[in-house]
Amino acid sequence: MHKNNWACFLLILAGIVIGGFIGNLFPSTWLNYGQTFGLSSPIVFDMGIMCITFGLTIKVTVASIVGIVLALVIYRFL
């Protein structure tokens, strides 16, 4: 049986979001321990008539990693 890669991708994204949500529910526990990386200030291109701003920050926590693992386990059993 062929498994859909989009389903795996969506499950992983859902695991990240739910894990981040759980980490924010319990801010003083070990679940919210993690690292943030990315651009500290956004890059701005001002071209006179149009202004484009680029920025990306990713926060990896224990809860989001647990969410990814649970999503992969659920995908395996689908």
Rank of each mutant, 00 (worst) to 15 (best):
S41H: 06
I22Q: 01
M50F: 10
W30P: 12
I52E: 04
F54I: 08
N24W: 07
R76W: 12
I12P: 03
T57F: 04
T61A: 03
I18Y: 03
K3R: 13
L25Y: 00
V69E: 02
A63C: 09
R76Q: 10
M50L: 12
G20R: 07
S28Q: 08
I52A: 07
W6N: 11
H2N: 13
Y33P: 01
S28G: 08
Y33R: 02
M47A: 06
T53K: 04
D46W: 02
L72R: 11
I52K: 03
G23F: 00
T57G: 09
F54W: 05
V73N: 08
L39S: 12
G34Q: 01
A63E: 05
N5F: 14
F37V: 01
G38A: 08
C8V: 15
I22W: 00
T36I: 12
L72H: 10
L78V: 13
L78K: 06
I18R: 05
V69I: 15
W30G: 14
V73S: 14
F45H: 06
L78F: 10
L39Q: 11
S40Y: 10
I43V: 07
T29P: 04
G38W: 05
V66C: 10
V44F: 01
L56G: 14
N5L: 15
Y33T: 12
C51L: 13
T53R: 08
W30Y: 13
S28P: 04
F26Q: 01
H2R: 11
T29I: 03
F26L: 03
W30S: 15
T61K: 00
F21L: 00
W6R: 08
G20N: 10
P27L: 00
T29A: 01
G67W: 00
T57N: 09
F45E: 08
I22G: 01
N32Q: 00
V73Q: 11
W30M: 09
L11S: 12
Y75W: 14
M1L: 07
I74V: 15
H2K: 11
G67L: 02
I12Y: 02
S64Y: 01
T61Y: 00
